[in-house]
């Protein structure tokens, strides 16, 4: 069993009428089975409203399954006694950088998590220093979060999670509100954490460029996992991705269109280099 495993996971939101009485349900996550290997970089793709954020919130026990089970590091999240272990194992970073920073000074925010789980003071300082270093924000430790760029704020949020020494970080659309440079900054940071510290990364996003280097990709639509595989395997099915309101990087799109027009290119080309190689081989062929 991987670090996060879900079996037949179902989550129903309860709709309420104007007086707050329950009035039917809406299924946000529907019969999801996932198994995420420790140390891997996994991406969950899906359009807005596909259920990907709802699924993410189960990994931190912020939401509990209506039916089915999810285990984090072997612990069933629905059991009360596992709650704090689950939250320490799987840290969570959210979309809006402003709404997840509690401290008024960067280092105090990073220390917030360790304070909550009762880490002794000298150890908190050590962890804060290491976490800020890991995300490259040490020089901003005394700054107010309000003065930072979006990308920097997200890195502080990641440091805040790292300071709790999780084995896994779940990032729920961490780049949706950032500009391209901030986006790159955040993706670089989490890739680095994945490589250098063997932290399992679960990245929820709808930006296709961000998943190219993932080990495994899940695509969600209407609460279900509809596609899964390596980025290469998933992007090879360009037409299917489009039917789920998603997109492919321009290079993949271009090769797919050329292929449709009759050029014998391979499926799921993800990089410019691979594309240029194939075109040149074709071009030089007599």
């Amino acid at each position: 069993m991987g670090i996060i495993k879900a079996s037949k996971l179902i989550y129903d939101y309860i709709k309420r009428d104007e007086d707050g009485n329950p009035d039917g349900t809406r299924r946000a996550v529907d019969q999801v089975d996932i198994d995420i290997e420790a140390g891997s970089f996994v991406a969950i793709l899906g359009h807005n409203g596909s259920g990907k954020s709802t699924l993410a919130k189960h990994m931190n026990a912020l939401l509990l399954p209506t039916e089915g089970t999810i285990w984090v590091s072997g612990k069933d999240t629905s059991l009360d006694e596992n709650l704090w272990d689950v939250r320490r194992t799987a840290g969570m970073v959210f979309q809006n950088p402003d709404n997840q920073i509690i401290g008024t000074v960067v280092e105090e925010d990073v220390g917030f998590g360790p304070e909550n789980i009762g880490v002794p003071t000298p150890e908190i300082w050590k962890r804060v220093e290491q976490s800020l270093e890991a995300v490259g924000m040490t020089m901003y430790r005394h700054h107010s979060p309000n003065k930072l760029s979006g990308g920097q704020k997200q890195r502080v949020a990641i440091a805040g999670v790292m300071a709790m020494r999780p084995r896994c970080i779940v990032l729920d659309e961490p780049t949706a509100m950032l500009d391209p440079n901030g986006r790159k900054e955040v993706i670089r940071t989490i890739r680095e954490l994945n490589r250098a510290e063997q932290i399992t990364v679960i990245l929820i996003t709808h930006y296709m460029e961000e998943v190219i280097e993932a080990d495994h990709v899940y695509v969600m639509d209407d609460g279900r996992i509809v596609m899964e595989g390596t980025p290469h395997e998933v992007f090879a099915r360009t037409e299917e991705l489009k039917s789920y309101r998603l997109d492919v990087p321009q290079v993949t799109e271009l090769s797919w269109q050329l292929k449709k027009a009759g050029l014998p290119l391979s499926d799921g080309i993800l990089t410019i280099d691979a594309f240029v190689d194939e075109i040149m081989t074709l071009y030089k062929k007599p």
Partner: peptide, 29 residues
């Protein structure tokens, strides 16, 4: 620039005959 521009420049560098002011997938195709 858009990714397409980079694709076109990479192709051109390899000696592929293509105009270097292409900015959309449609034109590139």
């Amino acid at each position: 620039a858009p990714q397409v521009t980079y694709i076109i420049h990479a192709l051109k560098e390899q000696g592929f005959p293509i105009a270097d002011d292409i900015t959309t997938i449609k034109e590139a195709r």
